[in-house]
Amino acid sequence: MKKNNILERIVTTIRAGRLKQRSRFHFILQTLLLALVVVAASAAVVFIIGWVRLWLHRSGVWFLPGFGLRGWQLFIGSFPWVTVIVIGALVIAVEVLLRRYGVVYRRPLLYSLGAVVCLLIVAGVMLDVRRLDTRVADFDMPGTVFRRGEGPVIIGQVIGLPDDRIVLQDAAGRTLIIVNKREVPFFSDDVVVGDMVVVGGFVRDRDNTLDAFGIRPVRRELLYLPRPPAFPGADTPDR
């Protein structure tokens, strides 16, 4: 009896015009909005990954793990973890929105989330943000997220190798000296004058000498140098 009352009440409400159907346009708009949010969030993730990759290379942090345990520690300490949190939140949002569709929710979360993460990481790694726009490529990255200033890694060009010393010039034009290359635990013997090198270590302000724990030559194109060239005479063959 009560159930029939329910049905009667609903029919009466419909006939009285108090219960209306949502238009097809409403659902099309909803789907479009959802697609837009998914695309925007995915694009943001790809762009952030591309930017992190650019910063890691340009700052030299990317090369730190090659300098042993200390290099790894400094790599982890220097990594822009805020971006990882932001990427994680955006990926979760994308997954939650996509789980409205059968093709996604019928699969275990491990597969669907794994696919989303892999796809976005591959796209992010493949994206060369420098090619998007020069202003983007040389934009000053936010210091709150990407570490600024003198860090655990210095990029320079070898301008002299007197005795056991290595003389470098950094992007700011400073001359930096490694007093005794034999005391550097991770030292590559094939460094020659003119090489671009990555040095793991810190600059002593008072005499511009370097406390280095690692030094290795690096191909210019791996440094993603900004435009104009940061080093005198250094062209940017990766452009």
Binding site: I6, L7, L19, Q21, R22, R24
Partner: peptide, 18 residues
């Protein structure tokens, strides 16, 4: 149960075009 059924039918009618 009856409330759930009523709400289900109301929402079904409202969203039937989806």
């Amino acid at each position: 149960a009856d409330d759930i059924v009523q709400e289900t039918f109301v929402k079904a009618y409202r969203n039937i075009r989806s």
